[in-house]
């Protein structure tokens, strides 16, 4: 359940932003989650709701922004969408694919008051 750690890290980022940007209530958290990242979204949603009790984010709605996986084939240099870490290149069949997007776990934006 590393989602609990991730939720705690999210809260910490939000609390630091609350001090730096002077807000007292978070209404919405937009979080980017890459398809290939190590996050189970529903587990994270559950953990987030547990850690934000009695904090500035206690009423925050968590919105996920899905980022699709993109790979670059080291053999034929074509770019492609990928769904797993073991997808083969659709053009040449190679597994030597460098991930160029889809690993994201990032808070993009907050709606605050």
């Amino acid at each position: 359940m590393h989602e609990m750690t991730l939720a705690e890290q999210m809260l910490q980022i939000i609390e630091e932003a609350a001090i730096a940007q002077n807000f007292t209530q978070v209404k919405t958290v937009w979080m980017e989650v890459g398809r290939l990242s190590c996050v189970e979204k529903e587990a994270l949603r559950f953990c987030f709701s547990a850690v934000v009790e009695e904090t500035v984010a206690r009423r925050a709605k968590l919105e996920f922004i899905d980022i699709k996986g993109r790979g670059l084939c080291a053999q034929c240099e074509c770019e492609m969408d990928i769904n797993t870490l073991y997808d083969a290149c659709p053009a040449c069949g190679s597994y030597a694919i460098q991930i160029i997007a889809g690993n994201e776990m990032r808070i993009r934006e907050l709606e605050v008051e």
Partner: peptide, 22 residues
């Protein structure tokens, strides 16, 4: 967590860019 955040109260809703990896 919460005690140091009640100095100024702003009720207007606004967006804050964070762009920070978890």
């Amino acid at each position: 967590h919460t005690h140091h955040m009640h100095a100024s109260v702003i009720n207007e809703s606004r967006r804050v860019r964070i762009e920070q990896a978890i």
